[in-house]
């Protein structure tokens, strides 16, 4: 599953259109849009808003090893190194107010330029930098990335968290043109889509130890033998080790577990027998 956080609706629009996402009216707190394998949220401006939105998306407990989250939005470029509209994959995020830095793990090939971004509470304008009122040590500035990253990294590994910024201006804009921003992001969508496809495949590629049938078999054993939570964990651990050691599917325990046990002692006895079989080397 790919989770997307954008600050503004016009940043979200190209993503919604590309993936044919549908508004989820059940979400009362944010504009949220869902597709088969994507969930997008519009956070509002600012790092706190972005952090709350990221946490809201990821805290449901469903975001695991196969999830990734990306913040997509426009940024200002401190130097005129790249043209307006260039999508940039951020490898370092600095929070202007706290001075703390955050880093994505960039393990996959990507079509983007790379750079660093500094997240500010206020809009950074060229004259602030020229006058020395603002000091920026990064390539780009934005208003969300540090909050987004900090929140996301409570839930996910750094190779599952990305910030993609599209250069919107060189810090000289007085008023933002919504259509222009939508257009800039729309033009970057091919690259973004290609990258997110790779991210999704990469985050997915671990094979689970147990097949669905084996998972069901273990659940069945736990239920029938009335195992305690601790015994359940022990069973799963022993079964995983058995599979790793032997490379074979789990044995058939049907002759040990005939029916649902009436008293716990019966369950313990059967569990000991299963334990003996699984631990044999």
């Amino acid at each position: 599953m790919i989770y997307v956080v954008t600050a503004l609706p016009w940043e979200a629009r190209p993503v919604i259109e590309r993936y044919n996402l549908k508004r989820d009216d059940n979400c009362k707190f944010f504009p949220m849009f869902k597709g088969s394998n994507m969930c997008l949220i519009v956070s509002g401006i600012g790092k706190m808003a972005s952090a709350i939105a990221a946490a809201y998306l990821l805290s449901g407990g469903n975001a695991g090893q196969d999830a990734a989250i990306v913040n997509i939005g426009v940024c200002g470029a401190v130097k005129q190194q790249y043209p307006i509209g260039t999508p940039v994959l951020i490898h370092k995020i600095t929070d202007h107010e706290t001075g703390r830095d955050y880093y994505s793990d960039i393990l996959l090939e990507h079509p983007f330029a790379e750079g660093s971004v500094e997240t500010h509470n206020q809009i950074v304008r060229r004259e602030y930098i020229d006058s020395g009122q603002s000091r920026v040590c990064t390539d780009f500035v934005d208003m969300e990335a540090s909050g987004f990253f900090q929140a996301a990294s409570r839930f996910l590994s750094p190779h599952q968290i990305y910030v993609i910024k599209i250069i919107g201006d060189y810090l000289e804009v007085e008023e933002y043109d919504k259509n222009k921003i939508t257009g800039l992001i729309a033009r970057a969508m091919d690259d973004i889509h290609g990258f997110l496809e790779h991210v999704e495949r990469y985050c997915r590629h671990d094979e689970p130890v147990f097949s669905d049938a084996e998972q069901q078999q273990l659940e069945d054993i736990k239920k029938r033998l009335r195992l305690t939570v601790t015994q359940g964990h022990q069973l799963a651990k022993l079964a995983a080790k058995y599979k790793l050691r032997t490379g074979k599917p789990l044995p058939d325990f049907s002759d040990i577990i005939v029916d649902e046990v009436k008293v716990k002692a019966e369950g313990r006895k059967a569990f000991e027998e299963i334990r003996r079989i699984l631990a044999a080397e």
């Binding site: 830095d101 880093y103 793990d105 393990l107 990294s153 996910l156 590994s157 750094p158 190779h159």
Partner: peptide, 26 residues
């Protein structure tokens, strides 16, 4: 290689929730 200047090496090396296996890929 892309060069990234950091304040302290532990800011990168000791981050939480890093995936050792995935990092071994690259």
């Amino acid at each position: 290689s892309v060069k990234v200047v950091v304040q302290h090496y532990k800011d990168v090396f000791n981050r939480t929730h890093q995936d050792f296996r995935r990092q071994k890929d690259s």
